[in-house]
């Protein structure tokens, strides 16, 4: 019968070193270690470049903007940012951006679905064309849209007589905002549709679900978080858009003037305080939208799991 050593004694051979001087050796002290704990080089320089750029370009400018607005005091701020014209501009901005983001999300879902799930001639070209709004300067888009939808334009000649005014109107604003935000809505949803498990859909069909039941109960919950993300990106882009809208909206105060356009016109009047106050409201609007949408998205992700 063998006599096993206890577990602790198995380390016996790692006892004191055999050189006989071990007693003179100080016990291994805890050694000071680099904070980032990796042998990879370049932490210092990359941290320096990154923080310099972020601080100089993002943190300081936004801080200055907010501090400048705060220096107006509550009443001064309200007087500058909450004029009837400004309120109208917020409403136009918010309304047209939300409408555009919703349209973009729906159309984006359609296009993404078709690109992923259906094979047809020209699919790859269509896929590439989706990115045009990312590459085309928005000023060009605005210019073209305004010429397309005026009374003599390619599309305007048909649409204006039936009462659809696509230029110098709210509709025009929504149109260009859909244009600039569409790629975001498509590109976020597309990979998620690609990663969907086709077997679950087939299983649902085999279990007797109709095509629409399958879509709404099986497919949609899986892609909804991505649709919401795409919506958020589209909305953020639409809220801040200036270049294309300025061409097509006509920029009529109280009617088709969006907040960024109002900021610029205040700036051109050297009304810095007012411009700053409106800018802070716009900034707050986009950031709070992001927070709301992020929260919604996380809830959706949790639900679909």
């Amino acid at each position: 019968m063998n006599t096993p050593p206890t577990p602790s004694s198995s380390n016996r051979r790692e006892g004191p070193p055999a050189d006989g001087f071990s007693i003179l050796r100080p016990p291994s002290p805890p050694i000071r270690r680099a904070r980032h704990r990796t042998v990879l080089p370049g932490f210092g320089i990359s941290a320096a470049i990154t923080s310099l750029m972020i601080v100089a370009l993002v943190v300081i400018p936004l801080a200055v903007l907010i501090l400048r607005a705060a220096s107006l005091g509550p009443t001064g701020f309200l007087a500058a940012a909450w004029t009837p014209r400004a309120r109208a501009a917020y409403a136009v901005s918010l309304g047209s951006s939300l409408t555009a983001a919703i349209i973009s999300s729906l159309l984006g879902l359609l296009v993404a679905w078709v690109l992923v799930r259906l094979e047809f001639p020209g699919r790859r070209i269509l896929d590439a064309l989706v990115d045009v709004p990312l590459a085309l300067p928005t000023a060009v888009a605005g210019l073209v849209y305004s010429t397309l939808y005026v009374e003599k334009g390619w599309l305007g000649q048909w649409l204006v007589p039936v009462g659809i005014k696509g230029a110098y109107s709210l509709l025009g604003i929504v149109l260009v905002l859909v244009f600039v935000s569409l790629p975001f809505a498509i590109r976020v949803v597309q990979p998620v549709i690609e990663s969907l498990d086709k077997d679950t859909e087939e299983a649902a069909r085999l279990l007797g679900a109709s095509r629409s039941q399958t879509f709404f109960r099986v497919v949609l919950p899986g892609i909804l978080p991505a649709v919401v993300t795409g919506f958020a990106l589209a909305l953020a882009r639409a809220l801040g858009e200036y270049g294309s809208v300025v061409f097509i909206s006509g920029n009529m105060p109280f009617k088709t003037e969006i907040a960024p356009v109002l900021i610029v016109s205040r700036l051109e009047e050297f009304a810095y305080a007012e411009a700053t106050a409106i800018a802070v409201v716009l900034l707050g609007m986009s950031l709070s939208m992001l927070v709301v949408v992020n929260d919604l998205q996380q809830r959706l992700v949790r639900n679909s799991q």
Binding site: L62, A236, G240, L282, S286
Partner: peptide, 10 residues
């Protein structure tokens, strides 16, 4: 998520 106009203003 910041309007380019706001960035320019800053």
């Amino acid at each position: 998520s910041v309007s380019p106009v706001v960035a320019g203003l800053a």
